[in-house]
Design a protein around this nucleic acid. Structure first.
Lengths: 135, 135
DNA sequence: TGTACTGTAATAAATAGAATTACAGAATGA
DNA sequence: TCATTCTGTAATTCTATTTATTACAGTACA
């Protein structure tokens, strides 16, 4: 997870959480994050697919939360953006003729699962409201 | 941490843990991981700087563990390779004129610290020996 | 019916990651 | 002593990933 999708999504959701239902445009949001509006729309599209955001097309359109910030767990956001494994995967195929190479991916996966579990238990105990209220 | 440094370092250390003090060459290790030997030497150099590995130059040279595998915590390996923050950082500077933009990096940092703490408590309870013994 | 939006695809630019090349220097042992 | 086999490291090239940009169809509003 080297890319900025988690912080970007959290930033978007934090902005939306502070508006009480008012729609924010992708341009406005992009201005706060300082990234390209198209990337904002892409992230919003993803958050919408995960049920956290609603958006409205056309003039005076924009995005808003699909449910109260108290009901959005940070773990949901994590799941919505998570693509690569937490501690990195080698793209290479380790040598199947080596007893370590042959099995390392299996054992790494187990390890990652365990670690990610610990992380998720943390994120499940924090809501978007908790985060947004810090500002 | 999108790159493969954690799994590569763990792979190297696992191989070394299974040799009882015998030296392994970067070429041999690279063959097991299936990456370039220069990258192996770079990682070994880093692990050496962190006191986990010793190496010997010249003919019949190679690397070996600097201390028993029972004394190497997975958290040490994590610290040795960790560069980027766990859940990704935006390279962009958020808008300082926006109340959210102005403070988000601060709050993200706090959040990351807390999450990383949970992860580290897990990794502190696993040794290289625990991992290597699975093979 | 013009304006201001979203949604999305396609492309280009920038950045990061990994491989490769190159070579100096160290240890060995014939 | 000196060829051989290693490490250490810098420099460069190659590749993959990420982000920005361009373009435009479609929607809603006033």
């Amino acid at each position: 997870m080297n890319n900025a999708r988690f912080p970007i999504s959290l930033h978007i959701l934090t902005l939306l959480a502070r508006e009480n239902g008012a729609l924010l445009s992708s341009d406005y949001i992009a201005g706060s994050i300082n990234i390209n509006p198209v990337l904002v729309r892409k992230e919003i599209s993803n958050l919408r697919n995960h049920g956290m955001v609603e958006s409205k097309e056309g003039k005076n359109g924009g995005a808003t939360l699909a449910k109260p910030a108290e009901g959005i767990l940070l773990s949901e956001i994590y799941h919505a953006v998570q693509q690569t494994s937490l501690l990195g995967n080698s793209r290479n195929h380790p040598n199947p003729d080596c007893p370590v190479g042959k099995n390392i991916n299996l054992h790494l996966e187990d390890l990652y699962k365990e670690i990610e579990g610990a992380l998720l238990r943390k994120l499940e105990n924090m809501t978007l409201a908790d985060f947004a209220n810090k500002f």
